[in-house]
Design a protein around this nucleic acid. Structure first.
Lengths: 215, 215
DNA sequence: ACCTGAACACCGTTCAAGT
DNA sequence: ACCTGAACACCGTTCAAGT
């Protein structure tokens, strides 16, 4: 009997498997043992290729952020470009909340992060901001993007029906508040409406309007 | 020999101890076993008062966010009120970064979170927004606040000298990028300038300007 | 060179038993 | 009523041993 020849592990294969694991079963499903199972390898074999779990997550982070600046027409409307890049970053962070930790700990993650920063700063300069204000705008949009991803991450893992159910439960909670919470009761029905991504884009566009008032 | 009479555990005492544990040794030092040690009690005794770890963190979160809406003159300038409340929320999250996780998982945390939501929504309604737009504005400022806290948390834990050193290292990294990163090199010297809190306030004010264009 | 498998030092949590 | 302590089902990681 000839057994199937398994190619040796590689950093690339491990990163692929990690992303698959997170994608299918949610971020909390990622453990080294489960990763080993998926790779049909002992869990500890991964340690030959990555020093530890955080180094692996780092590599995953760079992979996921890698697509954020791909194939973008850098001469289009600057607002739209910023929205697209940030939406992609948010999407990548949503896939993997652990990623937010890597992002916050050491900004210059790797190539992907530099490319994102360059793209955003470029657009802010194109929009006519001074370098100083471009830097501020960059910090602002990144903060909003990371915050949106952080907040939405848990709900994002649910399937659509469960998600809507949870949003409804939250609306109900605000609607049921006692007397002194007049504003909450009045607004309750409008909270968590639409997709989280739409809310993010709306927020980002408003932020950009504050940065460069629309003419 | 009369042994010292230990008062029975209470939710309050457990929350106090948890905050102490996090405050002194960093958030990763918090485990149920260590909490038990600090309380001079078996780790599992806590389970009589809290269903599980996440419920305990929930209560801790509410305690820390409790001060965010205290003593605020709700008839002042609405922008300033929003900035103050959000700054306090950010400050609370910064002190205890792992709290951001509890915040994101289940918005209706408890009393403190309802009070914050009410205060913010109230101000947005005062500013003339429709309930629908007030809800959007609320989501926006919370996302920015959580994002700012998430990003700044790691650096915030450093002492000022180390912090400036790290910011300088990041500026240097961007300044040293190769040819095609023109925008990054041009803006590098302006990145991470001023205090993180000032950057946050600047971002928040710009967001508010986008929400309600200044007259 | 690359992987295995036992082992270590932890986790959160349950539950019968104690007082 | 409240807490203990053993136990369970996990973790990430190390390291000698295998091939």
């Amino acid at each position: 009997v000839t057994s199937a020849v398994r190619p040796p592990l590689s950093r690339t294969a491990i990163v692929d498997a990690t992303i698959e694991l997170i994608g299918t079963s949610g971020p909390e499903a990622f453990t080294m043992r489960r990763l080993g199972d998926l790779l049909h390898v002992d869990a500890t074999a991964v340690y030959r290729h990555f020093r530890d779990k955080s180094e692996l997550l780092h590599a995953v982070g760079d992979r996921l952020l890698g697509g954020a600046t791909e194939g973008i027409d850098l001469d289009g409307d600057w607002r739209s470009i910023v929205v697209t890049v940030c939406s992609r970053v948010r999407e990548a962070l949503l896939q993997h909340p652990h990623l937010a930790a890597s992002v916050r700990d050491a900004p210059p993650l790797a190539d992907a992060e530099f490319a994102i920063t360059e793209a955003l700063l470029q657009q802010f300069l194109r929009a006519g901001l001074t370098p100083r204000n471009a830097a501020l705008a960059y910090h602002s949009v990144i903060e909003l993007t990371v915050g949106s991803a952080t907040i939405d991450a848990a709900v994002h893992a649910l399937d659509p029906a469960e998600r809507q159910q949870r949003y409804q439960a939250w609306r109900d909670a605000y609607a049921a508040l006692p007397g002194r919470f007049t504003a909450s009761r009045r607004v309750a029905t409008h909270l968590y409406r639409g997709s989280a991504n739409d809310r993010f884009v709306a927020a980002l566009r408003q932020l950009l309007d504050g940065v460069v008032p629309p003419s």
